[in-house]
Simulated scan of single mutants.
Amino acid sequence: MPNQRRAEPADLAALWDLRTRAVRTTCASHYAKDIIDAWCAAPPPEKLPGLLAAGGALVAEEDGRMLGFAILKLDAGKDEGEVDAVFVDPSHQGRGIAMRLLSALEAMAVEQGMRRLFLSASLNAVPFYQRAGFVAVRKEMYPHRSGIGLESVFMEKMLAGA
């Protein structure tokens, strides 16, 4: 099983490369090529180094290789939090890595006093989040910073133990 650790700003390039490979591979079944091309061409968001520095990001790695990552936006004093990302290297999907990362984010959220998590799921990821206990609230058009709209599903999960 892969080890988990907190992501650091120095991980940014590896995170973004993994994310881009995952989007190109796993989202191709639900999005047109031009949408994926625009999605993947966008550089990392300016907020990403801050999210990593805040301590809300986790990395799964094995033998020094990054296999996946997940990011929870930590906003002190809020009783809800946003799952910003969960990505797994396409060659390692199906091993339970994403579910373990998401479970660790949920534990982190409970420690922070959060009672609810929410996210905007890509269409291909909806079944994964449903297996993790998230409930679809509504379909939406997520305004990606590249200028495209991504069909997605807004989902939420109430956390036990918060």
Score class of each variant (00 low, 15 high):
48 L>E: 03
71 I>M: 06
147 G>V: 06
96 G>W: 06
22 A>Q: 04
39 W>I: 02
7 A>Y: 05
110 V>C: 10
123 L>S: 01
62 E>R: 14
81 G>D: 02
99 M>N: 13
39 W>M: 04
146 S>T: 01
9 P>R: 07
57 A>F: 05
145 R>T: 14
118 F>L: 09
54 A>C: 03
158 M>C: 03
154 F>Q: 12
114 M>S: 03
147 G>K: 09
161 G>E: 06
156 E>R: 14
45 P>D: 10
2 P>G: 02
60 A>V: 05
7 A>P: 01
44 P>V: 04
15 L>G: 00
66 M>D: 01
147 G>L: 06
123 L>T: 03
145 R>L: 15
74 L>R: 14
57 A>D: 02
107 A>N: 14
30 H>G: 00
99 M>T: 14
34 D>N: 13
151 E>A: 15
3 N>E: 14
137 V>F: 00
103 S>H: 14
25 T>H: 13
81 G>L: 00
161 G>P: 08
73 K>C: 11
113 G>R: 04
160 A>C: 04
37 D>W: 01
114 M>A: 07
99 M>L: 12
100 R>A: 12
61 E>T: 04
15 L>M: 14
127 P>C: 10
130 Q>G: 08
27 C>G: 11
127 P>V: 11
86 V>G: 05
26 T>E: 13
39 W>C: 01
39 W>H: 08
114 M>P: 01
58 L>D: 04
53 A>T: 04
81 G>V: 02
27 C>V: 02
17 D>E: 15
117 L>R: 12
144 H>Y: 07
83 V>M: 05
45 P>N: 06
100 R>N: 09
21 R>N: 05
83 V>A: 07
26 T>G: 12
78 K>D: 08
18 L>T: 07
141 M>S: 15
38 A>G: 08
25 T>P: 00
151 E>I: 00
43 P>R: 06
30 H>S: 15
23 V>P: 02
17 D>S: 13
77 G>V: 06
9 P>W: 12
39 W>N: 01
145 R>Q: 14
3 N>D: 14
93 Q>H: 05
17 D>F: 08
148 I>H: 05
27 C>D: 01
136 A>I: 04
91 S>K: 15
18 L>V: 05
94 G>H: 07
19 R>P: 00
154 F>T: 15
73 K>Q: 15
87 F>E: 04
106 E>W: 02
18 L>Q: 10
80 E>L: 09
92 H>K: 07
126 V>T: 12
117 L>K: 10
128 F>W: 06
97 I>M: 09
70 A>G: 11
35 I>Q: 11
8 E>R: 15
149 G>N: 13
50 G>Y: 10
69 F>L: 01
116 R>S: 07
117 L>H: 12
40 C>S: 11
111 E>N: 14
93 Q>D: 00
77 G>M: 10
54 A>R: 12
158 M>W: 11
23 V>Y: 13
22 A>K: 01
29 S>R: 13
115 R>D: 02
67 L>C: 11
54 A>E: 09
91 S>F: 00
110 V>M: 09
